Computed example of a mutant assay.
Amino acid sequence: CDGLTATAREIACDPSQAIIVLTTFDADEDVVRALRAGARGFLLKDAPPSELVAAIRAAAEGRPVLAPGVLDTVMRLAAD
């Protein structure tokens, strides 16, 4: 299965998991699917290592993490 399906399955087994989707794709539907599946974050693979480390720490603390471009997508979709 793909990563988004795996995310949904893992969250269904244990909702307390802090899953961050790390992908090369930032298509609107992928972002929405990941967040609906319960992902705590969505980052692109070109994120610098320091951003990845910060995202892991934030997710472990229960805070959501979105790549800047992904945040723009979420805000645009919420406004529609």
Results as ranks from 00 to 15, higher is better:
G3C: 02
T5E: 14
T7F: 07
A8Y: 04
R9D: 13
E10W: 10
I11G: 07
C13I: 01
C13A: 15
D14F: 03
D14H: 06
P15D: 12
P15R: 02
P15G: 06
T23M: 02
F25Q: 07
D26I: 02
A27Y: 05
V32G: 05
V32R: 10
R33L: 02
R33S: 04
A34K: 04
A34Q: 00
R36S: 01
R36G: 02
A37I: 04
A37F: 01
A37Q: 00
G38E: 15
R40N: 12
F42Y: 15
F42Q: 05
L43Y: 11
L43P: 09
K45E: 13
D46T: 15
P48Q: 15
S50I: 12
E51T: 14
L52P: 11
L52S: 07
A54C: 11
A55P: 03
A55F: 11
I56L: 13
E61S: 11
R63M: 00
R63V: 02
R63S: 01
P64G: 01
P64K: 03
L66G: 01
L66D: 03
L66I: 07
P68L: 02
P68F: 09
G69R: 09
G69E: 03
G69S: 06
V70N: 03
T73Q: 09
T73P: 10
V74Y: 02
A79W: 03
D80G: 11
D80K: 11
